[in-house]
Design a protein around this nucleic acid. Structure first.
Lengths: 198, 198
DNA sequence: GCTGTTACTGACCATACGGTCAGACTTTTC
DNA sequence: GAAAAGTCTGACCGTATGGTCAGTAACAGC
């Protein structure tokens, strides 16, 4: 039996492709243990498949990991909606925060996997950080600067504001155990619902 | 040669005890790879010692890990200074934030190791979270509630405020690569100096 | 300088690990 | 319905891993 600190919703009534099924199992494993700590046998156990079956669909551990990572980045890119200087700052920021919290709630494993990758020095995501993610931050920062110039919000460092929101929302996914324990609560959802506090 | 994504300050001019020397090397290894991903051989390489030497001083990987964890918790406890309802909220909160940022700056590996432990579901820190850490949060929350009752600060959920500060400060240590990359900066220190933005 | 104790280490061990492969089973194509 | 293609898996392989051990070196006490 696999020690699943954060069990995925059961895929017993599974309908998608087997590759997808394996990717979900692998995501949970990599999220919990990181690339080096992950075990192909545990991925197989989580997916309830023989180990060679995993290797049939994904040539190597590295390739499986990259496939998981790619899917996560892809799904996050889809959620990167547009904001312009005409948007109302309060509305836009609240929408952004709610979206990030929803992401953390719907797929905390993805968030934890990303955190693991960052902690290890982003060996597989340096390119992503330096290209699409950076330009995304810069676009947002530009809008925030425009809001400031138009007197719509107080002066802040735009990048710092984005980091603050990013970190606070991601925190609930990555440090789920800590937050639940410190708040003495059992359910993840109620914790996130309460996370918007202004 | 060990791939040190976040090299520790060199201990070449090493003066402390060998156990301490090993603990520092082990902290870096466990912080980067987590318990399961860490390799005793790499710990030995980081410490520039033969592997059996590590096992002479620490019976097992598990015991070495616990020793590292214990040292971190201990050093953090020392920094948990007291705040009372007589304190000025602005001063007290700023002091708290500066202290947390200093911690993140002085020992980011410790912060990352803690993050790794949380991501894995705190298998070795459940006790700590449920006892001393929880009561620390509750003590602080009480003071914040008293501040609110006295009209010194606006109404907020005290635990959420603590989490917000915790997450934002910890973020700079754990996601160092991301933040440096997105800000297009090379030095960690200047990034932290700029982190206090109000 | 001998003795007891602590510190160290090259060589080794059992097991776990990522990965392979030959053959079996299943589905598709015509 | 037979051949071809795709999917699956028990048994296995070479290597890396955590850990051991016998023996050596260093050092303190007398």
């Amino acid at each position: 039996m696999v020690n699943q600190a954060f069990p995925e919703p059961s895929t017993a009534t599974f309908t998608g492709s087997i590759k997808e099924h394996i990717l979900i199992a692998a995501k949970a494993e990599f999220a919990q243990y990181g690339f080096e700590g992950a075990r192909m046998q545990r991925v197989a156990d989580r997916a309830a498949l023989p180990k060679p079956n995993i290797h049939y669909h994904f040539k190597s551990k590295q390739q499986l990991y990259l496939a998981v990572l790619e899917r996560i980045i892809e799904s996050w890119n889809l959620a990167f909606d547009q904001v312009s200087q005409e948007s109302d700052p309060a509305d836009a920021l609240e929408a952004f925060i709610r979206q990030k919290l929803k992401q953390a709630q719907q797929d905390p494993a993805a968030s934890r996997l990303f955190a693991n990758e960052m902690i290890q020095g982003a060996p597989n995501l340096k390119q992503y950080l330096n290209s699409s993610m950076r330009s995304w931050v810069q676009d947002r920062a530009l809008v925030i600067n425009q809001w400031m110039a138009a007197g719509k919000i107080l002066d802040v460092d735009p990048e710092r504001l984005i980091f603050l929101i990013w970190s606070a929302t991601q925190h609930y996914a990555d440090f789920q155990v800590q937050a639940l324990s410190l708040l003495n609560r059992a359910e993840f959802e109620s914790m996130l619902t309460g996370a918007i506090f202004w």
